[in-house]
Design a protein around this nucleic acid. Structure first.
Lengths: 113, 113
DNA sequence: GTGACATCTCAGCGATTGGTGAGATGTTCC
DNA sequence: GGAACATCTCACCAATCGCTGAGATGTCAC
């Protein structure tokens, strides 16, 4: 046999310590929004159409001021819009911004594959 | 004009207080895993193949014992598997469980649409 | 205007959680 | 065997976060 070494031998591990750190900021921000049961339920409910605060409060079992807090966070994140009811302006009706939701989905997809 | 009312009049709002509360537990659990930069980076890095702890630590800029903590959480959640290197068993190589990852993706998709 | 209703804002408290430090376990090399 | 290495475990502390309570704003009905 010549001096040629066998190809299938187990190779010594040489950890690569220069891997680039992936950019996951968007995905983490999206996940932080969803990591609360009330906010996740809001986004799930609004998937089927607009709802006012009292409806969302009843469906989630939360008090209305608490829901208002979560809705403010979703508004600041640009994920939902609010507009008063045409016939009775006491009610704020919320709907999703589907463009922003799509952005969340793509950021999460980049991490999960 | 007869007594027939016009059809296009704005309708009085009657909030539906009996909406069923959506089940978002799985999506919330998935989001809680991703809502940390280190864990999100780990899952993103393992998307391209197996890596040992020291590689993940270098790429994320975290200390190895801290990474070990996060990897334990991912293991307990069934999202990653560990196995020692064939040629040098000092190194624990981690890889994703793609079935579990797919479960996460579907749970999140149910909320985001 | 007055009262009732729907929503909003924000300070404060309690619970959860990520990073650290120190020590323990398992592996390789000499 | 002993030393160096790679990883793990866990108690502790500081920071974060969600719920509550109280008060403010805006709208409707009378």
């Amino acid at each position: 046999m010549s001096h040629a070494t066998r190809i299938e031998l187990p190779v010594l591990p040489e950890p690569r310590l220069d891997l680039p750190s992936p950019d996951v900021d968007e995905a983490v921000a999206a996940a932080a929004v969803l990591a609360d049961p009330t906010r996740a339920a809001i986004l799930r409910l609004l998937r089927d159409g607009r709802h006012c605060v009292c409806e969302l409060a009843a469906a989630t079992g939360q008090r209305e001021n608490n829901l208002s807090n979560h809705l403010a966070r979703l508004r600041d994140a640009g994920l939902v819009r609010a507009s008063r009811h045409e016939a009775n302006a006491r009610f704020q009706y919320y709907e999703r911004d589907e463009d922003a939701i799509r952005g969340m989905r793509e950021a999460l997809r980049d991490v999960l594959g």
